[in-house]
Computed example of a mutant assay.
Amino acid sequence: MSRFQLLTDAQWSLIEELLPARTGKKGRPFRDARQMLEGIIYRYRCGIAWRDVPEVFGPWQTIWTWHRRMSAEGTWDLVLARLLATADQAGIIDWSVSVDSTIARAHQHATNITRDTGGWVELHESGERAA
């Protein structure tokens, strides 16, 4: 396996049917879904910008477009649901939940909102408060 092949054949077979497929329409050539998905995974795994995705995965613009469209269509939600269901059936997931009830308080000077403290006020010559 090369360092750019991120999914095993077993992993790919789980989600392959959920991804976009060739429609037969004329236009731009359809990119390989596995290559695009692995480009997206590589980008998130390495924490790099879209422009820095290696050319091995194809043009970064195409990879970004696939990711954007799959997000808008809800494909990522379907993929996550399939993977969670499969992992749960295999007993790989531990569903224990931990709730953290700590409170993070900010210092009183951490705000940028001005407030009337009733302190010093500029007065007019007549002795009235200025607005």
Rank of each mutant, 00 (worst) to 15 (best):
Arg3Ala: 14
Arg28Asn: 10
Pro54Arg: 10
Ile93Glu: 01
Ala49Arg: 11
Ala33Leu: 03
Ile103His: 12
Ile103Pro: 11
Arg129Ala: 10
Gln61Ser: 12
Val99Asn: 05
Tyr42Phe: 06
Ser98Lys: 12
Arg43Trp: 03
Val99Thr: 09
Ala110Tyr: 12
Glu125Arg: 07
Gln35Arg: 14
Phe57Val: 03
Ile92His: 07
Ile15Asp: 06
Leu6Lys: 09
Glu55His: 08
Ala131Gly: 15
His107Leu: 15
Ile93Lys: 05
Trp66Val: 05
Leu14Ile: 03
Thr65Pro: 04
Trp95Asp: 06
Thr62Met: 08
Glu122Gln: 11
Arg68Lys: 09
Thr117Ile: 02
Asp77Lys: 01
Arg3Gly: 14
Ile63Pro: 02
His107Pro: 12
Asn112Ile: 07
Arg115Ala: 15
Ser98Ala: 15
Glu16Met: 03
Pro54Val: 07
Thr86Cys: 13
Ser2Cys: 09
Arg69Ala: 10
Asp116Ala: 14
Val121Arg: 15
Lys25Pro: 00
Ile48Gln: 11
Tyr44Pro: 00
Phe30Leu: 11
Pro20Cys: 00
Val121Ile: 14
Cys46Met: 12
Ser2His: 06
Arg51Trp: 03
Leu14Glu: 08
Gln108Arg: 15
Pro59Gly: 07
His109Trp: 13
Thr111Trp: 02
Arg129Lys: 10
Glu55Arg: 13
Thr8Tyr: 08
Thr114Ile: 07
Ile92Lys: 11
Trp95Arg: 08
Thr62Trp: 08
Met36Ile: 04
Ile93Tyr: 00
Asp9Gln: 02
Trp60Lys: 09
Gln35His: 07
Gly58His: 10
Arg105Leu: 04
Lys26Cys: 12
Ala72Lys: 03
Val79Pro: 05
Asp32Tyr: 02
Gly24Leu: 07
Gly91Cys: 09
Gln11Leu: 06
Leu123Pro: 13
Ala87Trp: 13
Ser96Phe: 02
Arg3Gln: 14
Gly118Cys: 00
Ala72Gln: 02
Thr62Ser: 05
Gly127Met: 00
Ala131Val: 15
Gly47Ile: 03
Gly58Glu: 03
Gln11Tyr: 11
Ile41Val: 02
Ala49Cys: 06
Trp12Val: 08
Ala85Met: 09
Gly91Tyr: 14
Ala85Gly: 09
Tyr42Ser: 01
Gln35Thr: 04
Leu37Cys: 11
Arg43Pro: 10
Ile48Asp: 06
Ala87Gly: 02
Glu73Lys: 05
Thr114Met: 11
Leu84Glu: 10
Gln5Thr: 01
Ile93Ala: 00
Arg22Gly: 07
His124Met: 11
Asp32Trp: 01
Glu128Pro: 01
Gly127His: 01
Val99Trp: 15
Ile15Thr: 00
Ala85Pro: 00
Asp88Ile: 14
Ala110Phe: 07
Trp66Tyr: 15
Gly47Tyr: 03
Pro29Phe: 03
Val121Met: 14
